[in-house]
Amino acid sequence: MTAALLGWSILVAQLFLGLGMGCAAFRLMRGPRAQDRVLGLDTMYVNATMLLLTFGIRTGSTHYFEAALVIALLGFVATAALAKFLMRGEVIE
């Protein structure tokens, strides 16, 4: 009973997050401007972090936590660097 409840809710949550990533990917591809693409990428990173956490709950393994942490860190660095690039045209000055 509890296993079925958890299994179904995890499945629905993962579907939601996958759909969300799809929306973000659409914004990433369509633009129209570079800042929209970066915003889409940032949203994809956040959704991927949550998706990894739900995978962790599904498998009962804490290894996914580390992966989620790394994705969150990378997302911040990537978005900050891209925003800097949009502003100046260079990342390293």
């Binding site: 939601f16 915003l39 959704n47 709950i57």
Partner: peptide, 16 residues
């Protein structure tokens, strides 16, 4: 889980 994933989906829908 459903609340969090739902909010993430609504936020991503907002991008569209």
């Amino acid at each position: 889980l459903l609340l969090g994933a739902g909010l993430a989906l609504v936020g991503s829908l907002g991008l569209l």
